[in-house]
Design a protein around this nucleic acid. Structure first.
Lengths: 200, 200
DNA sequence: CTGTGCACTAAGCAAGCGCTTAGCAAGCTA
DNA sequence: TAGCTTGCTAAGCGCTTGCTTAGTGCACAG
């Protein structure tokens, strides 16, 4: 498993990265509002005030984590949707990849999916746009498969919702060491989704 | 839609019910930790101290809401699983009912599903038991269908997880007035799940 | 009419919160 | 070496938090 600090290669200096990493742990475990700036700073081995050297506020730390997480999720989904193979194969890749991401990165994913309400309105708008693009990508891919006669599903928006739900909800219940592991879980979910869409 | 106050017919006096109802609104919208006891009390038309006449703490209010929500959810799932018809028909009823419940009662459901971490350890154990029983009920029903040769799904625990994920996640994204409405959404999700399980 | 208990309020306490201020050591530039 | 910048800490400010205390109004039993 990748070290959380490696998630943000462009964040400088290193102390800012360590603060973000300990904020991910705390936000994912206890939630944004139950986490104090002292928790974050001391877990990163610094005094409480050190956080404000690198971030203007606690909310800014959340936004930095949430935005980068949303960007990576969208990039992954887009890549799978634009990949090789027919729409059925691409749906499998997308579901497997998105599911695996929510399992391996479940701490970041939990913040991405369940701490939206804690974002400031302006910050929320930024990630809401990324979310809309993610959902549209999935809907368009299913529509393509339906148009090609590969899927028999009737209600495309509802099917897209269901697929995203399946993947997203993994962040809620997944714990390290759960069986099946992230990759195998992704494969099995991809099969379930293929059946759900009535893939031939 | 049922008035939230009618959710707890046995809670007395009426002021305690109103406090629980305004707590549901606040917890669902902003989360437990971002809600103050003053928010709850004033939204119920009382002074801050009135909450402590009926509940020993803010955490006790959360527990009362979460427990009754879990009990109702389990009752509904159990009734569907023990209902008439073959396992395939019962899975459809279960998914339709559970989905509809998460849509119509999405505020309570949001607390039930996403505020577990805010419960005190002893309170968490109580609801964790109800959750385990819910999950086992779904798993047993699928296993019955597989044994009867009605489903072709290979991995039963993963399939049960996927089904619960689909229903539970509705509480995250559903907003009043969304299309399709709660009942129709339930029906469509039941169809998707039937296909997912490879129902004949 | 009096006494009792229930539901409630006004006021406020101790603790913890996000964040600020003032200052210091180390490293770089000229 | 002087002066500036960067990254950090010690101390603490103003405010909000969950919850408590003391007391009030009122329904109702005797």
């Amino acid at each position: 498993m990748t070290d959380p600090v490696d998630l943000w290669p462009d964040v400088r200096p290193d102390a800012a990265k360590r603060l973000m990493a300990s904020a991910v742990d705390a936000f994912a475990e206890r939630g944004f509002h139950a986490t104090t700036t002292r928790d974050i700073a001391t877990a990163a081995g610094m005094s409480p005030a050190a956080l404000y050297v690198h971030f203007p506020s606690k909310a800014a730390v959340l936004f930095a984590i949430s935005r980068s997480g949303h960007e990576r999720a969208l990039a992954m989904v887009s890549a799978a949707a634009a990949g090789p193979g027919d729409p059925a194969a691409r749906v499998r890749d997308l579901v497997a990849g998105f599911t695996t991401w929510h399992a391996t990165r479940h701490r970041v994913a939990r913040i991405v999916q369940y701490e939206l309400h804690a974002l400031r309105p302006a910050d929320f708008e930024v990630v809401a746009d990324l979310r809309r693009r993610t959902e549209r990508t999935v809907r368009d891919l299913i529509a393509e498969g339906v148009a090609d006669g590969l899927f028999t599903v009737a209600d495309i928006p509802t099917a897209a919702r269901a697929i995203l739900s399946l993947c997203v909800d993994v962040a809620r219940w997944y714990t390290p060491g759960a069986k099946p592991g992230p990759e195998e879980l992704g494969r099995r979910y991809a099969e379930l989704v293929a059946a759900m869409l009535g893939a031939r």
